[in-house]
């Protein structure tokens, strides 16, 4: 009786592990494994302005950067397979080889550098605030005391607010989209995350004129291109591509096209100088 119970527990655990393994691998492979110059690139599918999937079209700053890099690596647009790379899965996707690179609002941090290598940064974003257009009480991070903020559960932005501004109340949701109705009704006073993402939301047709970005960034997020750890050759090629993109004006054009409609101006540190590969 007892051993049968244990067997059942073990079987259940094994099943759970198999399912977990399936979950992380199911997003890729629609075009099979690529040989030669074929590239599998991980991007966000749900962030207007950075990486957005609409039907079979992909738009955003990250997408344009990825396309430019792919071209420099000798792959045409048709050779690219886009793979959805949600924040929590980015390292796994790279480590298991399901993508060749990740260009998905991927901040370069020391903890992540232990698992993957980064080329770049190709862009410097900062944490900012999105508020109702008629709100004059919030002018920057110093006027937040007693206010209610909204962000995504577990995100770096949410943790920063908790640590740095203890007088602030924080509502956390699963996605940023859920914060917007709460902001519109006055349930929360501001939505906080990277300014690029905020600009994307402010520019969406259904919210036009309702929200504005404060424009006082209080952190620096260096977006990099994530690749397999230790692949210095690839890193150097990507770094060169980023440098070329900045110098030939394509970089500025990508920003104007994707974030310009929101009235977004790249903050301090832009355009960045990509770090040397190690």
């Amino acid at each position: 009786m007892k051993s049968r119970g244990l067997g059942a527990v073990a079987a259940a655990a094994a099943l759970a592990l198999t399912l977990a393994a399936c979950g992380s691998s199911s997003s890729g492979d629609s075009a099979g494994s690529g040989g030669g110059t074929k590239l599998k690139i991980g991007i966000k599918f749900d962030q207007p302005g950075m990486g957005l999937k609409k039907g079979s079209e992909y738009t955003g700053m990250d997408v344009d950067v990825a396309k430019y890099i792919a071209k420099q690596l000798g792959a045409s647009e048709g050779d690219i397979t886009w793979v959805q790379a949600p924040s929590a899965q980015r390292e796994t996707l790279i480590q298991t080889g399901q993508v060749d690179m990740v260009v998905a609002t991927y901040s370069i941090t020391d903890a992540r550098k232990e698992k993957v290598s980064f080329a770049g940064p190709y862009f410097v974003a900062g944490q900012d605030l999105l508020i109702r257009a008629d709100d004059t009480s919030i002018t920057g991070p110093d006027s937040l005391d007693g206010k209610k903020l909204c962000s995504v559960k577990g995100s770096t932005s949410a943790q920063k607010v908790k640590d740095k501004y203890p007088g602030v109340q924080l509502q956390e949701f699963g996605t940023y989209s859920e914060c917007l109705p709460a902001l519109a009704t006055g349930g929360v006073d501001a939505l906080t995350t990277d300014d690029t993402i905020l600009a994307g939301y402010a520019a969406q047709p259904e919210f036009k004129g309702k929200f504005k970005v404060v424009g006082q960034p209080f952190s620096q997020e260096n977006y990099g291109v994530g690749i397999k750890k230790g692949d210095t050759a690839q890193c150097t090629k990507i770094t060169d591509a980023i440098k070329k993109m900045i110098s030939d004006g394509s970089w500025q054009k990508a920003i104007d096209n994707n974030l310009g409609p929101a009235g977004y101006k790249p903050g301090q540190g832009n355009p960045p100088t990509p770090a040397a590969c190690s």
């Binding site: 903890a111 992540r112 559960k153 577990g154 943790q159």
Partner: peptide, 17 residues
Amino acid sequence: GVAEASGLMKEIIENET
């Protein structure tokens, strides 16, 4: 936004991969 176990797990994954 309730700070229960799986929420903390998301936070740890974000910080520590």
